[in-house]
């Protein structure tokens, strides 16, 4: 902070103020190029989306002002509202599973950190992050098909009765899509948490062990609290991935069967490019943006390290 220390009054206040203001404008000059890009490619589209959301427009012809009618429809049309609900269901798979499982796996890997196995495990877990989502989606739709590996394994262990086309069944399609997401995001969370763990002072563990703490006690009392920030990042990134999901769903089910896996991202795309309801699509996009911000901000606050 450059705020003057109280009691140590600056010699010539006017001159300092002038210098500071000049420096302030110079600072803005440096910001201009980046801000111009940000304004044209981020702020302008958001402003235009907000504007479109108040019209009924097919994207080409003349438009009609409809006020907030599009927003009203987002919350009353069951198809649109259900897609929002599905996005929240996906949070279980995209966030809860990767974070919980990631913590467990990271804690395990940390214990064997020196071995070759740890390196292999890290690589294997991070691999999904490297593969394009489209490729992952295609691979998984094969794995989950009626004759795919998943069903073959189930039949092998005598669970032939539960085999089905996982992505084609109204009750299992959404969880199946969720598992693909969990598989993709698990590696990211594990690596993030592992990096966080390497920063924890080993002396803490040693002290805990001297006090007779077991592995579980160490995990709960040292590992998890120390990883608060990393967990915060994981939760934020994965929750946004769940709410704004598009690619995995588009590749694996396209929202089917019977809208069972319809999510807002896909719905926006269909509204804009297949139904040509640009206004409705924009309204849903604005609602989605507000939702993501409204959920991501409190998570940030909750997980902020209070010590700093």
């Amino acid at each position: 902070m450059t705020r003057p220390v109280p009691g140590q009054s600056p010699p010539r206040p006017a001159a300092v103020a002038k210098a500071r203001s000049a420096r302030g404008w110079a600072g803005w000059l440096f910001v201009i190029p980046a801000f111009a890009f940000y304004a044209v490619f981020v702020l302008r589209p958001i402003a235009l989306t907000a504007q479109y959301s108040l019209y009924r427009w097919d994207g080409i012809g003349p438009s009609t002002w409809v006020g907030l009618a599009n927003y009203a429809k987002v919350f009353t049309d069951p198809d649109l509202f259900d897609s929002l609900v599905n996005a929240f269901k996906l949070i279980v798979f995209f966030s809860v599973i990767p974070v919980v499982l990631g913590l467990t796996i990271a804690a395990t890997i940390r214990r064997i950190a020196q071995s070759r196995l740890a390196l292999v495990a890290r690589t294997v877990l991070f691999l999904p992050q490297v593969i394009p989502l489209v490729a992952a989606g295609i691979a998984w739709s094969w794995l989950l098909s009626s004759t795919g590996v998943v069903n073959q394994l189930l039949s092998l262990v005598g669970l032939g009765g539960v085999t089905r086309a996982w992505l084609g069944d109204l009750s299992t399609a959404l969880p199946a899509v969720g598992m693909i997401g969990a598989w993709v995001l698990l590696g990211l969370c594990t690596i993030l948490l592992l990096a966080g763990m390497s920063k924890i002072d080993p002396a803490l563990y040693e002290a805990a062990r001297l006090d007779g703490a077991g592995a579980w006690r160490e995990f709960v009392s040292i590992t998890v609290p120390s990883l608060r920030q990393e967990i915060g990042v994981c939760v934020t990134v994965t929750v946004i991935a769940a709410l704004a999901s598009f690619d995995i769903v588009y590749i694996s089910t396209q929202g089917g069967p019977g809208n069972a896996t319809m999510v807002p991202g896909l719905q926006i795309y269909y509204l804009a490019f297949s139904e040509r309801e640009v206004g409705m699509a924009s309204a849903l996009a604005m609602v989605l943006m507000v939702l993501v911000i409204a959920i991501a901000l409190p998570i940030q606050r909750l997980t902020k390290d209070t010590d700093q």
Binding site: L43, L48, W57, D58, P62, V278
Partner: peptide
């Protein structure tokens, strides 16, 4: 600054489709 920027960007265009 943000308000000015967004406002300027949005005000620059009329109803969508009017200039197609």
């Amino acid at each position: 600054a943000l308000v000015v920027a967004v406002g300027a960007l949005a005000a620059a265009c009329g109803a969508p489709g009017s200039n197609s």
